[in-house]
């Protein structure tokens, strides 16, 4: 942020306005990102994230809370960053849940096959 000097009043006002406009233009309120993060968290929850990735789920929720808090303080850059991190955490949680379930299914399947093989071995040729 440029520091304001009061030697030239008009110039200063103009500069200030320019900075404000620039600030508003570069960091708008990340409403959309927050909505996306919320949806991501919801997806992660329904995918079983609370069970398979409790750390990531908690982190995502905290970061969404911070994003909202930052929104309230109109600290939109922080809000966006928190929201983006919350989305990343939520997506990771969802993936972990999906991956965990797949691993479980694979293990179950392997067990099935093992049982089948054992049965097959027990059966007389």
């Amino acid at each position: 942020m440029n520091q304001l000097n009061s030697c030239r009043k008009y110039l200063a006002v103009g500069a200030c306005a320019a900075v404000l406009i620039a600030g508003c233009a570069s960091v708008p309120p990340p409403t959309e990102q927050i909505a996306v993060s919320k949806v991501s968290i919801a997806n992660a929850v329904s995918a079983g994230g609370a069970e398979y990735a409790p750390v990531e789920m908690r982190s995502a929720q905290e970061k969404l809370d911070r994003a909202n808090a930052a929104m309230a303080k109109e600290d939109y850059a922080d809000a966006r960053r928190y929201a983006e991190q919350a989305q990343a955490d939520a997506r990771l949680a969802e993936k972990k849940a999906q991956s965990g379930k797949a691993q479980k299914s694979a293990a179950v399947m392997q067990d099935d096959i093992r049982v089948l093989r054992e049965e097959l071995a027990r059966k007389p040729r």
Partner: peptide
């Protein structure tokens, strides 16, 4: 990583 793991599991399935 998780995606790869999931896919691997799915392939295994």
């Amino acid at each position: 990583r998780e995606t790869a793991s999931q896919k691997a599991s799915e392939l295994a399935i």
